[in-house]
Amino acid sequence: MTTGLPDLPPVFGPIIPLREGGDALSRAVQLAPQHGAGTLAWVRSSARIEAAVVLEPELPLAAARPALFAAASALADALGAYGPAEVPITFRWPATIRVNGGAIGQARLASPPGTADQAVPDWLVVGIEARLAFPQGWEPGHGLQQAALREEGWTEEEIPAADLTAAWARHLMAGLAEWQQPGPRGGFSRLAERYLARLEAEPWMAGARRGLDPSSGALVLDRDGTRRSIPLTEALAESAA
């Protein structure tokens, strides 16, 4: 069975296509124990992009969670390469993807249930979902602060969903490799720099200098010498509620 995706590096496999309505993250989680790193599940759809990849981190779970930021940055890079240069692509803490001020999707993360923060997980799954088009009959203004890529300049004829999905996967692997690379051009600092460059300044940040904690992925706000830490785990729990 054809995967339906353009050619990808051999690090990816097996590649599992899902029908419309499938859940790529859940499918990748199901396959992770058996197939391991590089397993990629993706949804064939004309209305959305959805994909997930299995990773096998060497870091403890807490320090591996920033893979979520790599997944978000990879989608932003893929969209930026294919879409209109003048349309801003930003993040809302921790992993909402916004295009031209409207939310189009999010990055997602899953790990083995019960894994302690200081234990190295057997696997980690990162994924993304992004809206290509609104449902038929959708009225403008019905969903406040929501957007769809097709309405913002990403045309179906020039940029098929499969191409965007494959581009995300390639950018993800490049970003993860950069994270593992020592020196000034790599490492966690580079991952944080790329993510923070797109992170929207919200009122509760109040002009603070922002950073990411490499040991946990927490957002660190420094204001006049006073530091405040926003745990990534709490933010993910709130967004899932």
Score class of each variant (00 low, 15 high):
58 E>N: 08
101 G>M: 05
106 Q>N: 12
44 R>C: 09
200 E>S: 10
52 A>D: 00
197 A>C: 08
32 A>F: 11
71 A>F: 05
59 L>H: 06
82 Y>L: 13
107 A>G: 15
9 P>A: 15
200 E>M: 12
88 P>M: 13
191 L>R: 01
220 V>K: 03
190 R>H: 07
126 V>E: 03
115 T>W: 07
240 A>H: 14
90 T>K: 10
68 L>T: 02
60 P>H: 05
199 L>M: 07
104 I>R: 01
101 G>S: 05
215 S>Y: 03
182 P>Q: 04
96 T>K: 11
16 I>C: 13
239 S>G: 09
203 P>Y: 12
114 G>M: 09
74 A>V: 07
224 D>S: 14
239 S>Y: 04
17 P>W: 08
128 I>Q: 00
26 S>Q: 14
25 L>A: 10
97 I>W: 01
190 R>V: 15
142 H>T: 08
135 P>K: 07
215 S>H: 10
207 G>Y: 04
137 G>Q: 10
135 P>F: 15
30 Q>L: 10
40 L>D: 06
218 A>C: 09
40 L>E: 09
5 L>K: 08
234 E>V: 12
45 S>L: 05
235 A>V: 06
145 Q>R: 14
222 D>F: 04
109 L>F: 11
108 R>P: 00
61 L>C: 07
230 I>S: 06
49 I>T: 09
108 R>A: 12
186 G>R: 00
59 L>P: 00
99 V>I: 14
227 R>E: 15
186 G>S: 02
48 R>P: 00
